[in-house]
Design a protein around this nucleic acid. Sequence first.
DNA 1: TAATTATACCTAATCATATTAGTTTTGTCA
DNA 2: TGACAAAACTAATATGATTAGGTATAATTA
Lengths: 189, 189
Amino acid sequence: MPRLGLTADTIIEAAAQMANEIGIDKISIKLLAEKFNIKSPSFYNHFTNLDEIKNGVMLYGWKQLEEKALRAAVGVSGYDAVKAICYAFYDYATSNAGIFDAMLWYNNFQDEKAHKATQNMFDMIYKITASLNISEQNSRHLVRMFRSFLEGFCLLVNKKSFGHPQSVSDTFALSVDTLIGGMKSLENK
Amino acid sequence: MPRLGLTADTIIEAAAQMANEIGIDKISIKLLAEKFNIKSPSFYNHFTNLDEIKNGVMLYGWKQLEEKALRAAVGVSGYDAVKAICYAFYDYATSNAGIFDAMLWYNNFQDEKAHKATQNMFDMIYKITASLNISEQNSRHLVRMFRSFLEGFCLLVNKKSFGHPQSVSDTFALSVDTLIGGMKSLENK
DNA sequence: TAATTATACCTAATCATATTAGTTTTGTCA
DNA sequence: TGACAAAACTAATATGATTAGGTATAATTA
């Protein structure tokens, strides 16, 4: 049988796409193998096990999101930049529900690489915040606050947990403004 | 073999406890059966499948949390009540990591019962908010905002995702104050 | 109280998937 | 061209969910 040019990246991308289609908890070695027309055991030449693949999807997602956020923050500064990042986050997380699940679910502190993956993303907010005469300590608190809200909100949107037929984007706008209000109140403190 | 007095509630409680100990994704029919000294297949007399049990843990968790929050809000009103609920939420979610995972993970809109489960909890905040001269629409936005933050924050704490050695409870306090600040700014609007 | 019935348990079997072991093939490189 | 590593393959093992079918227990009823 001729060989495919299978690389780790190719596989992760396929897994990520599959996660968006059927959910991260539904992807399997079996399905991935079928996708590439090879047998399940052959997969183990590229990965240790299924968890490693899911972990890969998690890292891939944070990487992608970081890029999007970076791009969104170009040309804007201060509070506008924070806002732009929030919207980029929302956009990515809700257009990639399966990947986003992986990003939340498989991101444990135990793994240094996983930790770094999100660090990069949220350091962007940290740096912006720190440039606004907000103390280092408060900047760190604020990053955590933004992160908590963003992850929670997108998770809820993806799971369609907001029952009432009221605009989700209005809620988002109002919330982001509130969080930014909190930032502002910490200037020079 | 003599029969146990196994009821659905007993099983869910055991599953919930097990979820806290080993994680919701690790509970299995096998382990639960062992816990009750019966064989796996016997379990199917009580439940359709494993998913139904996990779903039960989710409902159980929201129910418990609702009670805790209710208790926490007794004797306080307005913003203090909201604050009390937030702290009760944090306390429950972080002392019951496995159950909380189930609460986030298995709560899809698809299921009316699941939807109701959280509705009860967050209606508490809604009612308080509505009593403060905040419009219905904004009240709904605010509930979503609080919910998003609370769920996101507790998830991150449980997953030990906050790397920096800085007080988590300080972050929580600051964040809750920020959210409440957002509420205040919506009075009479 | 004895007969009946439904329920809860059991054993045996099936199925699906992950993963390991051991073999063969393919492609690269000296 | 021959040797080696990588990447496939087939065969086998393991685990766990679930189904099928049978039996005992407890509750209900005649």
